[in-house]
Amino acid sequence: MFQLSPAGIDFVKTELNRYETKRSAILPCLYKVQEENGGWVSPEAVNHLADVMDIPAAHINEVLYFYTMYNKKPVGRLHVQVCATISCAMNGARELAKHICDKYQVKEGEISDDGMVTVTKVECLGSCGTAPMMQIGNAYYENLTKESAIEVIEDLKKKSTNQ
């Protein structure tokens, strides 16, 4: 059963008092749940959050399913999001995403066999002047080539394994 950590519970309580209405705390609290639940928000995690927040689960699900940054299914430890909107598409983003998928033998949106990598193509990330680019975790990696993108991922894989 998923449970928020004591620090997570404290976070939720602070957020509940931070805005003019309790409901505004749903978006930030879903990020916290995702962070503590290995990168995605499960149905049971929603029920737990609804209890902690004392807010109907329906209100939380409405938010969860509307916004793309909450993952509704598990992802690899490195969630590689390649922007594939116009300026990035014009600069080889789709070929880059395919290259990364081929390299890690994974289909778009699925998790590689070692559980490390998920690749998704996403819509404009506001990095159009530094295309092509990818986001992994919170960080942007810009002006990529096929080689430099793999270098970044390999480096992060090493760091993630050593943790």
Binding site: I26, L30, E62, Y67
Partner: peptide, 21 residues
């Protein structure tokens, strides 16, 4: 925000700030 282009529309943004879709 949490990833929705429509929240750049001012009333969509207000809905989002209110904790809704």
């Amino acid at each position: 925000g949490a990833g929705a282009y429509i929240c750049g529309e001012e009333t969509g943004m207000i809905s989002s700030l209110e904790g809704k879709k």
